[in-house]
Each structure stands twice: as structure tokens, then as C-alpha cells.
Write a protein that binds this DNA or RNA. Sequence first.
DNA 1: AGTATATCTGGAAACGTTTCCATTGTCAAA
DNA 2: TTTGACAATGGAAACGTTTCCAGATATACT
Lengths: 356, 356
Amino acid sequence: METFPNIRKISANDFFMRTPTIRDVAQRAGVGVGTVSRVINGSPQVADGTRQKVLEAIAELGFSPNKAARQLSGGKTSTVGVITPFLTYPSFVERLAGIQDVLDHHDYDLVLYSIRHPQQTQRKLREIGAQVAVDGLIVLSFLLQTFTPEELRRMNLKLPLIAVDHDPQDYYPHIFIDNVAGGRMAAEYLIKKGHRKIGFVGHVIESAFENESGFTSSQRRFKGMKEMLLQSGLPLNEEWYRFGAPNEYSACEQALHILSLPNRPTAIFAAYDTLAFGVQAAIDKLRMKSPDDVAVIGFDDVKAASYMRLTTVNQQLFHSGELGAQYMLERLKTGSFKPDHWHVELALTVIERASA
Amino acid sequence: METFPNIRKISANDFFMRTPTIRDVAQRAGVGVGTVSRVINGSPQVADGTRQKVLEAIAELGFSPNKAARQLSGGKTSTVGVITPFLTYPSFVERLAGIQDVLDHHDYDLVLYSIRHPQQTQRKLREIGAQVAVDGLIVLSFLLQTFTPEELRRMNLKLPLIAVDHDPQDYYPHIFIDNVAGGRMAAEYLIKKGHRKIGFVGHVIESAFENESGFTSSQRRFKGMKEMLLQSGLPLNEEWYRFGAPNEYSACEQALHILSLPNRPTAIFAAYDTLAFGVQAAIDKLRMKSPDDVAVIGFDDVKAASYMRLTTVNQQLFHSGELGAQYMLERLKTGSFKPDHWHVELALTVIERASA
DNA sequence: AGTATATCTGGAAACGTTTCCATTGTCAAA
DNA sequence: TTTGACAATGGAAACGTTTCCAGATATACT
């Protein structure tokens, strides 16, 4: 009893428009499958006439190469993973949007991994690496910092990694900003505006949940501010500095406290825009007005900051995502990260709006 | 000259820990590949002893099945796509987070497609369908509404579809809310609080860019509000209704206008929470106070609404995403959507906070 | 014992690409 | 005319699973 391995080719199912394969295209164009593959992948090794025929066949059949097969054979997925904590924080979303934008323009897909607890990171990384479901991985914020270089080495990930919004270091490419310098800039701006009594509303780590690297960007920005105040011979007053959860409501409470002091500051630097919104709410509650009664400057330049007319320090959130994706794609194309892309610092700019 | 197709198996490369395949596991456990596959997929057709051996081998080798191969062979990707407009709107992000959460718990990956212009939708859908890179597609908001049922039929998508936040209709499963009823609820709440002069800040479609279905949820919520006012015998005053872009700044301007009228309303219903924040800003600017001078109620119950102490209409954003994902997974498992899941309305609730 | 039945297992074929090698055709130089 | 180099092409093998069928083993019943 002979078997007919090709029986599917003429089976009844095919009358219902089986999605076309490269073989169908080859047949239709009267060429071999190899040639079709070469056309699809833009190899120069194809005569113009042939290429034309193939392209026509592709169009007529509405063929589109099957990703899984492509990946299995070639080892490439045309997919980049993004792993992020706190999907709902506006700053992460903006970076994500930047990444998405670049990947989309290069016909790469974006797989989103979201982590609720840093402890999940390791498991997730292993999974991702083992399944080979993505060509590369963009890691947002501190997630990678939860590992020592040694741990990371032992995990022996084959995947190209790039970190966006990550402390400067030497172990993998990353894009970062100088938070301390940013803090200095914010303070400098306020000082130039004539303020001498400057407060701060920031974020403390309450648990290991938030950041295991020991420092939040809030702390660094605070440090920069203090440096600048000292350097300018201005008073540092511990009463004016308050820390809480990273949300508007908490910030509002901190600000209410600060602004109710008998000797209150004339300006407040909020570590994130989100906190600044809370500070603005407090100012409004107290029937004060910024910038006249109290000036407010934020940090991040989130989308909403422009609606809210918040003066803030821009850190190119969207662009950081774009760059991360761009460098990753280059890495995937050329096989290695450009040395210039290993350690990329983004410039900060004070954006003057209505609040300070 | 004989060839050795299996030469790779003993090539030098293997000393560098080639990622293990199902064959390696089979060998190590002393069983056939079929058995390993059955173990991985939880088939009951495996003796306990055998299963144990296989599981051990899997653990020892750190094996994890290759997604691409799995898909190519079985036709399944363990991946669900999400297609969304305006990635950066907070309400979309919350729905997305809900989807992500459910998928993650079921070991499904989430591929994110973002659309900048509704016209891209069709191309994107075709691409996604053709590449077979996802098992199903969750469509957010109005994107599918840009097609007539006829168009959609002609596109002949093989992919299971479910829409989240989509007008009720008959062509595919969807999860929705009754925006008109929501508008009525908001108005009713304000009326119960004693307000008789109620304003509205909403969103107009400025271009085809935003929504091609003819109605925004803002318009529907407005309709509901008017119905309720009429029904309660309260005055409708066109002066109190203003429409603009869907951002806080624009809403602030509209509210400033309304609240500066000689005969101003004592309460304002904002079509989205984002707009409500703008209204609150306006109230603060005018040195008024909610809820005493002007009450404000929003709609959506975005995360920030709770920080901002905004009274609003909750529409279960996160949960809508969870449900969409859940129903999709069920569809993928059982082969069809449950009839109950074809047309799912989510309940709305007024959340009383400090603003009204 | 012998037979029927149920359970468990091994392994080939198939999924749709890419890649590599062999073959053919073309053109220029000798 | 012959030779060599090179461009263009066809098609087999490989990628790592799942599925299906056949065979093996165990169990139950006569």
C-alpha cells in the first residue's frame, strides 16, 4: 500500500483557499522555491525579469511569508521583546510608544512582557531566552539592575540585550540620563528665577518591590539639587524635603505639609512630573498660585505636562525608546552593537512653561 | 561519497551548550520524542514513571520548547495580538494592562500592534492574518467600526477576533458599556446632590483621524446627560456645553469659559477623566473649590482619578481587558466563543470621591 | 492458555521557510 | 573553438515541534 505524501496538494480543502505558500508562488511564477525566497529577501542574485514574475505571482496570490517557518529555518523572528515594570506609569508608556514606532516602521513585531515583581525578572528572562521567541530584548528601567554582573553572566543569555533608562555601567549597552545633573539643572533654573528657598517632593523606596539597585532616580535628582544649592550658597532646610509614594495624591499631601510651614519655600522641585501635578493640586487647594506664590518644576516632561503647562526637565522619553529600538535593529542587522551605542547619554533640557 | 546528516549532533559546537531540543530530552530520558511531546502537553496517555523520567530530563537540561517549531507543526502560536489606537491614552493602557495580566498567567505572549491612523487598520489586519503570527486578535475601541460588515466579510480573516470597548453589533464578539446610560448616571448623581444647573465638557471629532463611526463616547454620554436633565425637568442651557480636543488643557479652557458665564452651572460633567482634570485645573485657577463652588464628575475611573480624588463613573477598564483576554483564550481552547461572550455589557458605577 | 481490550510508546511525516550546493547559461579572454 | 569566471537558478536538507499510526505490553475475561 503506497502512501501519497502529497495528497494534500489536491485535497478538497484546497478549494477553500488554503493560504498560499512559497511553493504556490514558485509554481505560479514558473520558478523554484529558492528563487522566490531570494526575491522575498531582496537578494541581488536574481535577474530583473524573474524578480518581476515572482513579484506578480506574490501579488496575485496575496502571499505573505509564514513567520514561524521563517524563524524555524532561519533562526530569526522579526520580533523584539520589551520587558517593563509598571506598565501603567506614563513614562514607561511613552518609551514603549517610541520603541513601537521604530519597530513598526521596520516590520518588526513587538512582544510585550510586563513584570509585576522584580523577582519574576529572572524567570522571565530565562523563558524568553529559551523559547527563542524574539531576536532581541529591550529592558526598561531598573529591571536588569537587580542582577549582579556575575549573575547575569551565569544566566548565559544568548539574546542581544539593551537597557533603556538604566544606570551607567559596563556590562551591556544602555541608554541613560544623568539624574544628578538633571537635579542640578532644575535647581539652577529656579535659582536663576530668583528663588532662594527651594523645596523638594520625592519618592522613597518602600519595599524591594520598587527598585533593588539601591537608588531611585528621585534620590539622584535630589542629590543634584542639593549640590547646586550648596554651590550657590543657598540654605538647605530639611523641613522642605518630603518623600512619599510615587503618585499625585501622596505628592499633594507632602506639598500641603511643606507649604503650610511658617517658613515655607518659594519654589518646589518635584522628582517626577506626576508628583508635580500633585504639588500643583496642593497649591490650588491652598488658594495659592504658581509661579507667583510658589513655583513648581517637574521632571520627565510627560505628555500631560504640556497640557498642564508644567515647567519641567525634558528627558526625551519617546526618543529614548526610539533609540533603544534603533540600536537593537542595527545590532540584529550587523551582528554587533556599535561601540558608540554601548553607553548613550541623552541630553536634558529645562522646558519653561507656566508653572515656574 | 556518503553524507552525514546527523553530523551536527557531534559537532564541536555542541560543547558550547546548544540549546536542548526535544530529541535531547528524549535521549536523556531514554524514551521517544512522541512521549516527550505528550508529557510537555499534558497528555494523560503517559505512564507515571515515564512522565517522571521525562520531567527530570527536562529539568536537568533546562529544556523549553521552541515556539516557532511548535507553531509550524501545530499551527498554534501561544500568542495573542492586541491592536490599539493611541497607545498613550491612559484608558487604553489600562485595558492593555488587563489583557497582559490574563495572558501572562496563561503563558500566552502579547504582541502589540499600534495604529496611528485608522486607514492603516486594514493593511495591518491583512498582514497579521497572513503571517499567522498570532492565534487571535483583540481589537481595542473603534478600530473595527471603521469597516462595514461587508468589508470585513470580504477581508475573510481566519483569525478569531474580539473587540473591547466597541459599539454593540452582531458581527463579532465584543465587550462594551452603555455610554448613554453612563451619561444618565452621572447626571442623576449630580441631581441627587442637589444640582440644578449642570454643565458639560466634551470632545468633538475634529477629523477622520479620531473615529470614523460617527459617534464618540463623549457624544453618547452627553446624550444620556441631556435625557436625564429633561426627564427631571431641569433646564438645558447650550451655553454650559463646550467641546474641544481630548486633553486636559483644552478642557481647562472650556471650563474657564463656562465658569466665567454670568449664569454659571454649579456642576460640570466631563466626558472623560482626563477632561475632568482640566476642569479641576480651571476651578483652581478661578479660586473656586469643588465640590462646594462647582462640583465635577468625570467618566472612566482612570488610575489617576483616585489620586486626584475625582468623583467619576467607573467603567472597569482593567477588567474589560481581562475579560477580552479571557474570552479569547477560551475561544482558542474550545474552538468557539461562548454565546454569552458574544455581547458582553459591563456595569457602570458612580464612584464618589471628593470632587462632587 | 488464548484471546480481546485497553494502555502506553516509538518514530515517520508534515508544517513552510532558508541555505547551500550543483547545474546551467553567458560572456570575455585566450 | 576552448576555457574560465561569474551570474542565475532549481531543489534537497535542515530547523524542532506535533500528530498519527503501528507495534508492544499489560490486563481482563473466557
